[in-house]
Design a protein around this nucleic acid. Structure first.
Lengths: 220, 220
DNA sequence: GGACACCATGCTGTATACAATGTTGAGTTA
DNA sequence: TAACTCAACATTGTATACAGCATGGTGTCC
């Protein structure tokens, strides 16, 4: 149902994932609720959900904060992603029907032209997430998929930034990950997925470390 | 801080994990809030967090419900658990210091006497969770640990029931899982952990299926 | 007898008020 | 100048009120 709390939830979720709040910024409830056209009650309900998901931080008596990303947290989230996706592709290789795999291959073929150098980084990240969530869907395990989706939301922002530099290779990588799935080669599928995520992780860490070093440049 | 919403959260979390609500039961907010000595506002905030964690279900316009366990969901949660714990022990084997491992071995030795046939199933489950969460801690990844902890809360109830029949073997299994960790044998540690969880999964599924068959016995 | 409509009741979803706590900044002192 | 005090202010946390929707039961019609 489209309750006000749900609408507010969607909006604030986007805002948090897109880092429209400044890192560690305290979020003013009255102000934000006015901006979103609701009262504080549904806003707080939405923010409680987001805090449980890890997209916002919460401190009793002081309210809600933007959850800042630091290099360590990014490493941890990528490790989580790797654990979840390695098993997702393992299960997908085992369970997906031939028909599902054929559809997937068609999909991969169809979106290829959208991976161009001129595409903005954010769109590439969207396409990349789409690929990975489709794999997660083929695992047939919605709980696994939800966790992966959640983990993506938490690292989306850093991916936007780190994606700027390496657009073209993504689609090729996806194609080579999918090949062993079709061949029902579980071991290779898992291995390639892990490598893919590890590589992406290294780039993301670099991005965050760069941002950190810029942050701490003395100003005077 | 010990805000009322936090206290209510802890209490309702326990109630949900312990299935003190009947499966798929609609939870009456006024009634429950009165019982817990708070108003509906903090109760709803707590339940929003629990719904985000998957411990309660939510339906817009109709409120919060007990999230019922069915055989399929149990399978999915155990798969999630396997994915997370396999990587947790992989990371733990890699990262834990020799000192941490020595402490862990001491801990395993110390709690051995508490695994007796006379111990109630719930205590064995508690000890078992403790073991697995300690491993998760050794991974050095708090995000991974949180997800594991959450997954445990969601399957705790079915484990209480299925544990009744096979108490004695748990501690021995833990010891054999930990051996390759000390030997820094990553492959074997992961393999044993996966097998351990799979076995536990089979028992849990059996429990839920038994419960389901009893539920649907015609009454007249 | 079964299905449907309708009303009374109860419950949820949200706005608002207020108490309690945290925050900020001016003024004071060492 | 730096640190500390304290009071005015801002913000959070919670209770409560109320509108609107869901629910359950009664009566009516087929």
């Amino acid at each position: 149902m489209n309750t006000s709390a749900n609408l507010v939830y969607e909006q604030v979720r986007e805002m948090a994932a897109n880092f429209e709040f400044k890192p560690a910024e305290r979020i003013n409830e009255s102000e934000l609720s006015k901006k979103l056209g609701a009262s504080r009650t549904p806003l707080r309900e939405a923010m409680n959900r987001l805090a449980a998901e890890g997209l916002l931080a919460f401190e009793g008596g002081r309210g809600f904060f933007c959850q800042p990303l630091n290099p360590q947290l990014v490493v941890h989230l990528y490790e989580l992603r790797e654990a979840l996706e390695a098993d997702a592709i393992r299960l997908a290789t085992e369970r997906a029907s031939d028909e599902e795999l054929a559809h997937f291959q068609q999909y991969l073929h169809d979106i290829a032209p959208r991976y161009t150098d001129s595409a903005p980084a954010r769109e590439i990240v969207t396409l990349d997430e789409e690929f990975h969530l489709k794999i997660a869907n083929l695992s047939g395990n919605p709980e696994l998929k939800n966790m992966i989706e959640l983990t993506y939301a938490r690292i989306r922002y850093v991916r936007w930034i780190s994606m700027r530099e390496k657009i073209d290779i993504t689609h090729a990588a996806h194609e080579s990950i999918f090949k062993p799935v079709i061949a029902r080669d579980q071991g290779l599928a898992v291995e390639l997925m892990r490598k893919h995520i590890k590589k992406s992780n290294n780039e993301a860490i670099e991005t965050v470390e760069k941002a950190f070093s810029q942050l701490y440049v003395p100003r005077h």
